[in-house]
């Protein structure tokens, strides 16, 4: 049984995957003296209408999105789903002529599997585009963290904190939502751990900058130490956000292969 990458995709495709699995088993068990399969023209027409609708909506999405990867990856999924649907139409025609037709059953199973696989490809492509949105926010935070190195006055620090706060809140919210979506327990845990570390380090970074600014402005001893401390915290936060970006791009397949 395929492992689906997110709970949304799993919720949509799992029931169909189960049924197709069931049909295949029955088909193999009953292949020789299988009973006649009833006329499937009606149910196939319903699949055909649903496929046309998905392709129409998908093409609209491809038209409007700025995500070049999605523009590239979606059309092959449409083709797969449409070709599979043609197989179902052929199966229905063959079964109408001969309800015992074994080739028709093969077409029926291949077509159903193709619809499942094509819809899964399409949903994964869409999901990957959603992940890229989260990664863009993470990269924005990574870039803004580097600004910490040039904060040298209290006014700068106030501005820096005011800008960093909302961005961090947005990033945390997006990652927490993403984490809830993942079906892979390890990935969820990795995101949870890294995000927690980043949240804990944020106030540490702000106070490290504050100490650096205070010492620098009074020309007291210890500027180097304060600078090293600020740098350490900044680098630790950056490493954790880079880890979050890495984990966000993992798919179930990567993890299993790695294992």
């Amino acid at each position: 049984m395929p492992v689906f990458h997110t709970k949304t995709i799993e919720g949509i495709l799992e029931p169909v995957a189960q049924q197709i699995c069931h049909l295949v088993i029955m088909h193999e068990e009953g292949e020789v003296d299988g009973k006649a399969i009833p006329d499937l023209t009606g149910p196939v027409a319903a699949v055909q209408a649903a496929v046309s609708n998905l392709v129409r909506v998908g093409k609209e999405t491809v038209q409007t999105t700025e995500d070049q990867v999605m523009k590239r990856d979606m059309p092959p999924a449409f083709i797969k789903v449409e070709n599979s649907c043609s197989k179902l139409v052929q199966a229905a025609q063959m079964l109408k002529a001969d309800p015992y037709s074994v080739p028709a059953r093969d077409y029926l199973i291949d077509g159903s599997r193709g619809i499942l696989s094509g819809t899964s490809d399409l949903l994964l492509t869409f999901d990957e585009a959603e992940v890229r949105k989260v990664i863009r926010v993470c990269k924005g935070i990574l870039e803004y963290l580097t600004v910490a190195e040039v904060v040298e006055t209290m006014e700068d620090l106030i501005t820096y904190t005011k800008n960093l706060g909302p961005g961090m809140t947005k990033m945390s919210k997006m990652i927490e939502e993403r984490q809830q979506e993942l079906t892979h327990q390890e990935h969820r845990q990795m995101l949870f751990n890294s995000l927690n570390t980043v949240k804990q380090l944020l106030p540490v970074l702000i106070s490290a900058i504050k100490i650096f600014v205070a010492i620098k402005s009074t020309h007291s001893a210890g500027v180097d130490e304060a600078e090293r401390n600020r740098c350490f915290t900044f680098e630790k936060m950056s490493a954790e956000i880079s880890e979050i970006i890495r984990v966000l791009q993992l798919t179930t397949w990567d993890e299993d292969t790695w294992a």
Binding site: I12, K35, L122, L123
Partner: peptide, 29 residues
């Protein structure tokens, strides 16, 4: 959202199709 809804209706339609095809086979098994 539109894509998810469209994918859900494909899944439902495919489910119904497979169910009707399996119905005939079930008697046998």
């Amino acid at each position: 959202e539109q894509i998810l809804e469209a994918a859900k209706s494909i899944a439902a339609a495919t489910s119904a199709l497979v169910k009707s095809a399996s119905a005939a086979q079930r008697e046998l098994v």
